[in-house]
Design a protein around this nucleic acid. Sequence first.
DNA 1: TGTGCACATGAGAACGATTACACACGCTGG
DNA 2: CCAGCGTGTGTAATCGTTCTCATGTGCACA
Lengths: 330, 330
Amino acid sequence: MKDVALHAGVSTATVSRVLNGHAAPTPETRSRVLAAIDELGYRPNALARSLRTTSTKTFGLVISDLVNPFFAEIARAVEQEARAHGYCVVLANADENDEQQATYVRTLLDRRVDGLLVCPATDDATWVEEVVAGDVPLVLLDRTVTGADCPVVRADGAEALTELAVRLIDTGHRRIGVIAGPAVTSTGRERLEYFSAALAQFGHDLRPEYVVHGDFRRDSGARAAAELVALPERPTALVAMDNLMGLGALEELRRLGLVVPGDVGLAVYDDQPWFPLLDPPITVIAQPTVEMGRAAARSLLALIAGEQPADVRLNAKLIARGSCGETNRG
Amino acid sequence: MKDVALHAGVSTATVSRVLNGHAAPTPETRSRVLAAIDELGYRPNALARSLRTTSTKTFGLVISDLVNPFFAEIARAVEQEARAHGYCVVLANADENDEQQATYVRTLLDRRVDGLLVCPATDDATWVEEVVAGDVPLVLLDRTVTGADCPVVRADGAEALTELAVRLIDTGHRRIGVIAGPAVTSTGRERLEYFSAALAQFGHDLRPEYVVHGDFRRDSGARAAAELVALPERPTALVAMDNLMGLGALEELRRLGLVVPGDVGLAVYDDQPWFPLLDPPITVIAQPTVEMGRAAARSLLALIAGEQPADVRLNAKLIARGSCGETNRG
DNA sequence: TGTGCACATGAGAACGATTACACACGCTGG
DNA sequence: CCAGCGTGTGTAATCGTTCTCATGTGCACA
């Protein structure tokens, strides 16, 4: 920058003014400065700038699992919305791991991101204190944690899960096995709770041995499916509360030679483009991932602007495709 | 930091020394400083540190498409390897878009990343000059660009594609339709070239009307498939040169009521966990994504360390599963 | 012609860390 | 008893920006 100033015969202050589009500089000096910048191939140092202005124009996004397409889509949406507003996104992958998440939150804070979007790996909220201490705007995405006082963006599955329960009961399923998410995540608990409540509401209690908790990943889905179909009274249908566990369950059922829905029905939480391609197409509860990502980014922007954005609750919806033996009617 | 120094009754220099694990400070001062840090909840400002040390301990990773699971897996591997070496990864998603890619490269350079990993969206290499000008270590991943003098990490599909060609011919396929990647990407060109050469080698020239170029995304795969099966002499098999285009092709075939492999065979480049679940399971060419990501990160580390890492070529391999009507012996 | 007023520009102090250098202190050895 | 040395600390310059003032110039007005 000093070089540019020298080269254009002005001071660094003027170069800075030109760079930041201040009103002051004369058209003539402005063009001289621009010429010098261009000639020297000068690029401003964002670090120094941020150090001075205390603004990095950057969001930190911590997601639970990058290879989970649900989160990948969210990440993409967040990034698009952020970019549209001149923000950059630093993506951190917690890999469903508490400690890694905490490490990343710390790193992002140290780098002075302007705001933080987190899909918490678990309920553990110790990291929240650090964020609050750093006075960094925070928005929770998909999952909540206890005791965090910040906007939350999530999809509400209560209605869809109730509808699914009705559909399963109508189809004649009485023994339903649930491959639930971890009890240490809000989504893990809620989905199970809503579904179980819906069943109970219609007089069909979910027996404890028919619930197996996984970790939102593929292998756990396979293990849970194996465990469930091995029960003395085999469930007539399985519900996997996440697309990766659903994938694992499918693999396991296939491996065991069980036919869907003939031997056992299957419904999965989260839609994926390949679910309709299976035989039979899989019945799912679809979440509005793109809208979730967008909404979260917008909430964060609002927070940064000093507003108090309300929580966002979008609706997940049931898409019945026949993998539970039901008739396909959307 | 000044506060910490004051609180511990030392100078900022000493605080810094404690922070950076210098040999100098006495155990006694060290603990006093640590106590003060802890008490004040002090967190060092990474920006200031980087400004001073000209090292950010950060890699920039520009990938072509975040929702493409192939790249998501690579990203995860890069991030893991980087983290293992104390580096952070800033992930940028080019969305298969040249301009967006250039913008991101520039942003990352401005933020003074210590190194750059790029999966180039196209052959356009203008952005490379900026990287070179900034004297930032660069490694290309998956795809190459013309005239970039830097280490490249990629999977070589020549062998697998040849094997696939043999397999298809053996199975009796004579009219083979190719859903190729964009001609402006090295992988798009190479895969087509290798496959076409392999066919030719066995006396079966690939006719131009049997090649349709897509853009490595789902919709283009569907369009290409539609176009190919509408040819007067319908191909007996389709080869999609990327998993997303393969997905699109599958959807289109399904929509048209064409049965795989009865009406038309299908093979896809890139494996995905759900391919084996389809009926029939899809024949694929699998790439070692995790190893690619790892290797790329290691190459970059080497480059930063001043070494001259050699290009890495890993092998893709054919996994025959029956979707081309062949026997499964893959 | 001198006073006052815009207005563009420059000088220099931050921002928060690292680090070369100088200093003070307590030892040892002649 | 003092030169000399090693050791632990502090002082201050520095990284590349931004931004507050102060300064200088030109112009209108009395």
